[in-house]
């Protein structure tokens, strides 16, 4: 596109400088806070953090929630996306509008709605009792299940949108072709759809996972202090204990988690396509 490299680099310079100044540099400063303690470089803060059983429990819980939300979002996301791409143009844009709609409502308002819906006298418990699944209300609020439901609802649209765009880029005739060749629906999904939409899955999965493990409002409101996640723990360490060293350690763990999820998803998707 450009006559020479210098021209292209010059054009990229403002954006690169901006990113370096307001993103890369602060991240380095933030992360060094956990390694540079009391005037020397050390891994003590990390050792102390991992030695505490509560911290290990919180890391595990955060990972578990992130993985479960991502997996559930992928399953529901594929089903919805496959249904949406098959619709005629007008119906498709209406459905995408509906998917996007929750993203336009503040996460605080959405999460508060869950407080009412999941409560003892909420619609979920009423329905469960009406169909006779339980005699008395089930406790959902302030449990890991409540946080899971809240996060899934919060991030599912991102997965659906990524998968819809990936499915739209898939040639129209591959599914009929596979059918003609005698593949069943499971084979079609695993051998045709999944490899051809892996970029959508990786993008959506990374967004959902990174969003879930770093969300604050949902675990804070629906989980409370009984279901601590890494981010609510980080908030507690900073606001109550002024413990910026632990905060830096937690921030680093969160960054590692998000990058690993991206690599892992990439590996899963590529692995499938190579077979």
């Amino acid at each position: 596109m450009f006559q020479n490299r210098a021209e292209a680099l010059t054009l990229a310079l403002p954006a690169a400088t901006f990113a370096a100044l307001v993103f890369v540099l602060p991240v380095i400063v933030l992360l060094s806070g956990g390694l540079h303690v009391e005037g020397r470089w050390t891994l003590e803060a990390y050792q102390r953090f991992f030695a505490d059983p509560l911290n290990r429990l919180v890391i595990w819980r955060t990972l578990e929630l992130g993985a479960l939300v991502t997996a559930a979002a992928a399953v529901i996301g594929y089903a919805s996306a496959l249904a949406i791409v098959d619709l005629p143009a007008a119906g498709k844009s209406r459905m995408i509008g509906l998917v996007v709609l929750p993203l336009m409502i503040s996460p605080v308002a959405r999460t508060y709605a869950w407080l009412v819906i999941l409560g003892r006298a909420g619609i979920v418990n009423k329905a469960l009792m009406l169909i006779g699944l339980t005699d008395e209300p089930v406790r959902v609020l302030f449990t890991q299940t409540a946080v899971f439901i809240g996060l899934l609802q919060l991030f599912l649209p991102l997965m659906v949108l990524s998968l819809v765009s990936a499915l739209e880029n898939m040639p129209n005739d591959v599914i009929p072709a596979a059918r003609v060749l005698g593949a069943n629906w499971l084979q079609i999904f695993v051998k045709v759809v999944l490899p051809l939409t892996r970029e959508g899955l990786v993008t959506g999965g990374t967004l959902v996972f990174a969003g879930s493990v770093t969300a604050y409002i949902t675990p804070a409101i629906l989980g409370g202090s009984k279901v601590l996640t890494l981010v609510t723990l980080l908030y507690q360490r900073v606001t109550i204990a002024n413990d910026l060293v632990s905060a830096s350690v937690i921030a680093f763990i969160l960054i590692v988690m998000s990058f690993s999820a991206n690599l892992l998803l990439n590996r899963i998707a590529t692995g499938r396509s190579l077979k």
Binding site: R139, L141, F142, G224, S225, K226
Partner: peptide, 10 residues
Amino acid sequence: HRNDIVTFYN
């Protein structure tokens, strides 16, 4: 009794 307590409020 932690399982008997609905939440620890802030």
